[in-house]
Design a protein around this nucleic acid. Structure first.
Lengths: 351, 351
DNA sequence: TGACATATGCTCGAAAAGAGCACATGTCAG
DNA sequence: CTGACATGTGCTCTTTTCGAGCATATGTCA
């Protein structure tokens, strides 16, 4: 497994391990992997950091940065994460939060692998991607490259009506396999709720639900790769976004959904912004993440009224229009409001 | 590289494991533990399931149910959880969700343990606690027993003004140690925001933040046990809630916070209710979890208006007052609204 | 110099939320 | 039997928040 990352601890001795395996049937030693979805906004495009994975048997592919967690070396999961992210990419993480721990499928040992890498803990990190960031490795990729159906900045993305909706409808008409008998919600209803079909409102936070629905319906490469039975019959049509190895795309989906949710009640947008910015830039960043266009005047009222920002006194001149006041994040808001964030509710129906 | 993708290999042998351990210094095998905070509401009291832990060297104590995760046996984390919860307690879990993965402190190996149990994945489960539930083991305990400062049902709990506030103020006046130099928010401000001191509003969702603040200030037993330096000078006064071994109380704090947050945008209350209930019972359950008293008429308007419930047609007669209509959860709401829940906003200032 | 892009202030109406009044219909103690 | 009491239920009223539009200011740039 993952070799490029390194960890430097010494392994447990074989003897102890054998004993353990033999004497204590309750324990099963496994490796812990940490995956990071490192998100930034670059020229109004939300991007995620990927690294080249040359060791992949199927040729080099882009993966989320990942590495092992070695409890002998690092006291905390986050500490371990920061360490190898810095080693691997040269990046010093600022804000980071745990997303989810995945162990469910596709995480099998390779031949020769003794300690299967069954569990991986996903992290979300938000960072400012300025030009002079010293990336030693890896590249920024638009997250919409992996999730084209999530990009509503220019209206409802065509891929939904063209590729997703018809195939989901077909899938919905086929009978559910007996293995999921108690599934309480019909396939058609799930598709409708997830993708806002038939006039249902689009909920931008349901990123993971949408991904998992497409997976279950066998419409994305990962499903085929993992041997989902439903996937077999669907292999020949346009792929839906770039696939990623393992469950990296699932982790990314979780990261996008969490970012979209959190931006509304925590001032995390500012992790993505330079220290000074105009309100327009701030709005564009929020829109890059959430999708829809916001009413400019209301956005100003909201952000200023909530005390999220304060003017620096300076102006930005080369805006292409009237010069804009520069603002900075008003940290004190954390001491005033319990849940400060960019409270943008979705318009009544964007479907 | 990333091996986790890939194929489904058969489990490896001891020999292979030795090789692996020797040749691949990148991995450190650890045990995975699963912890469950199983929550119910019993007679308007939110309760959590605890089991007796006789193995504790300091005598028997109550702990959250926990067990190992064995990837050879269970394909999914949740599957493993459900299996040993049933074995251990006789309970069949309904709703369950992952909370957080803890690996940070207090998770030391016991003597004789070869593979330290470093990582534990916390789960939240919600269930209905009816009288005839077949608990073979364990007991329901009010969660406010572990977090008395969270119980606002009879107004602001005295323990805050009597024990917590003065000690936090003293803590705030002592200088922060150099080990946390970049701490951006002053101790006094953190205490004020967490516990709603000096007129600041109480945010019922900040359960974990409050617990961690008390831990950091050395005011709870776990801090002393874990050897926090700050704890040494504080050992002789009334304890703040019942302590739990390891980080079980932290997991419970996470569970309470998550439950309080989620109840507002997902119809999870109904996991705690019998199939039929009156609106008053529903309100009491919500209040047991969230704390404050809600305006009865508005609660009705809210719940009915959101389409969360529908009348069964029957009445409940022995209510002590006018007979009440019986309602049941209206599942179809999941197909109509993106985020249905009991939308109770806090009154402007409850401090 | 004028088209254009951006910034900024103000108003209006709809919807949601908080809070109170009034009354209906049961139980239960005396 | 009767009245205190507890609960259920309908309605109104005010305040706040939010979506949306109008109008105007002040820059850049062809």
């Amino acid at each position: 497994m993952n070799m490029e990352l390194s960890g430097r601890g010494k392994p447990t001795t074989d003897k102890a391990q054998r004993l353990q395996a033999r004497n204590n049937p309750e324990h099963s030693a496994v490796g812990i992997g940490l995956n990071a979805a490192i998100v930034a906004v670059l020229d109004n495009e939300p991007v995620v950091l990927v690294v080249r994975n040359d060791a992949d048997s199927a040729g080099a592919t882009d993966v989320l940065p990942f590495g092992p967690f070695n409890p002998r070396e690092h006291r905390t999961l986050e500490g371990g994460l920061r360490a190898w992210v810095r080693d691997q990419t040269g990046l010093d993480l600022g804000y980071a939060e745990q997303l989810y721990t995945f162990a469910d499928r596709g995480r099998h040992a390779e031949p020769g692998d003794i300690i299967p890498h069954v569990v991986s803990i996903g992290y979300l990190a938000l960072t400012e991607a300025n030009a002079k960031s010293d990336l030693t490795n890896g590249a920024w990729r638009s997250w919409y490259q992996y999730f084209p159906w999530e990009d509503w900045r220019r209206g409802r993305p065509d891929i939904i009506a063209a590729d997703i909706e018809p195939r989901l409808k077909m899938w919905a008409e086929r009978p559910s396999p007996a293995t999921t008998p108690q599934r309480p919600i019909a396939r058609a209803d799930r598709a409708r709720m997830c993708f806002g079909l038939d006039g249902t409102a689009w909920d931008e936070e349901k990123v993971l639900e949408r991904y998992e629905l497409l997976y279950e319906a066998g419409l994305i490469e990962e499903a085929l790769r993992d041997g989902r039975s439903a996937a077999q019959a669907w292999t020949e049509r346009p792929k839906l976004g770039h696939a990623m190895p393992s469950d990296h795309r699932r982790i990314l989906a979780t990261a996008i959904g969490r970012t979209r949710a959190k931006i509304k009640y925590r001032p995390v947008v500012f992790e993505l912004m330079p220290p000074e910015f105009t309100l327009y830039e701030l709005q564009k960043t929020v829109e890059a993440i959430l999708g829809p266009h916001l009413h400019k005047q209301n956005f100003r009222r909201l952000v200023e009224g909530a005390g999220l920002v304060e003017p620096t006194g300076d102006m930005k001149n080369r805006t292409g229009g009237r010069p804009a006041k520069l603002f900075k994040f008003r940290r004190e808001v954390l001491l005033e409001r319990p849940a400060p964030g960019v409270r943008v509710s979705a318009p009544p129906n964007r479907a």
